[in-house]
């Protein structure tokens, strides 16, 4: 589904990603772990099409197509979804208008008829239940005045509405209490399909108790320095990132 080859990216002249290689197949859940500042969010942003990061080398194919050649909105409509580490507040843009535009832009792209107001509200109600998001939140502006937890739930709610093929969850667990964490994880699991894939970016193992990964990668200083099965999560939990650093001879 996603093939990343030797991906390098810069921001403000500084190289953050320094040769990432990663292959993700349909049906898989990959965890990307690593200490703060190692480039996890940068990778997520580059994949989602954030133009403030400059790709200097490498290629990415998504379902056989050149991902890097697509603008961000086309990547989304091709089925890529990013749950932001820090979702943006957008005063004045109502949740409803935002979601309706998003859903219908995607339907237009796939040559489907736009949803009627009634069908849209029905879809929204269904998905709201799935992530147990407070009804009031969808009457507000996008993320405006939402608590940290509400923002994260809102990301998963949007994911549920858009039904992506590949979801990248960037630290979706941070700032969540255990109940919210369970709800979010449950939502992700319910949305899991054999033809879809998920990348869970986190630096705690907590979320991975609920969303069990098939493959775990450690990203460090812009490179994937270790790849293993889910047991790596426990090992990291036990030994900490210093162990990786030591292994790398630092």
């Amino acid at each position: 589904m996603l093939i990343i080859k030797d991906l390098h990216a810069k921001v403000e002249g500084k190289e953050i990603l320094r040769g990432i290689n990663l292959t993700i197949n349909a049906g898989e859940v990959h965890a990307i772990m690593g200490p703060n500042g190692s480039g996890k969010s940068t990778l997520a942003n580059v994949l989602a099409g954030n133009t403030s990061f400059e790709v200097t080398k490498g290629e990415v194919t998504f379902n056989g197509r050149d991902l890097l050649a697509m603008p961000a909105d086309v990547r989304a409509k091709e089925g890529l979804f990013l749950s932001f580490q820090y979702p943006v507040e957008i005063p004045g843009v109502s949740m409803i208008n935002f979601l309706k535009t998003a859903v219908n832009e995607s339907r237009k792209y796939h040559q489907l008829k736009e949803l009627s107001a009634g069908d849209f509200l029905k879809l929204m109600r269904e998905k709201k239940e799935l992530v147990q998001i407070d009804s009031q939140l969808t009457n507000r502006s996008v993320n405006e005045g939402f608590s940290g937890g509400e923002k994260k739930k809102n990301e998963i709610f949007q994911m549920a509405m858009l039904e992506p093929k590949l979801a990248i969850l960037d630290e979706t667990d941070s700032g969540l209490d255990i109940d919210a964490l369970r709800i979010v994880a449950n939502g992700v699991n319910l949305l899991k399909r054999p033809e879809n894939a998920t990348i869970v970016v986190t630096h705690y193992q907590r979320l991975l108790d609920y969303i069990v990964p098939d493959v775990v990668h450690v990203l460090y200083k812009g490179q994937i320095v270790k790849t293993a099965g889910k047991d790596l999560v426990l090992e990291l939990e036990e030994k900490g990132y210093d162990w990786i650093k030591k292994e790398l001879g630092e």
């Binding site: 603008p71 909105d73 979804f81 957008i90 004045g92 843009v93 935002f98 998003a102 792209y109």
Partner: peptide, 19 residues
């Protein structure tokens, strides 16, 4: 905010207008 809207499938021009 512009990028956020785009990552939900909204084209840049439309996203600008929304903002």
């Amino acid at each position: 905010a512009l990028f956020y809207l785009q990552t939900r499938g909204i084209p840049e021009k439309e996203a600008r207008l929304m903002l």
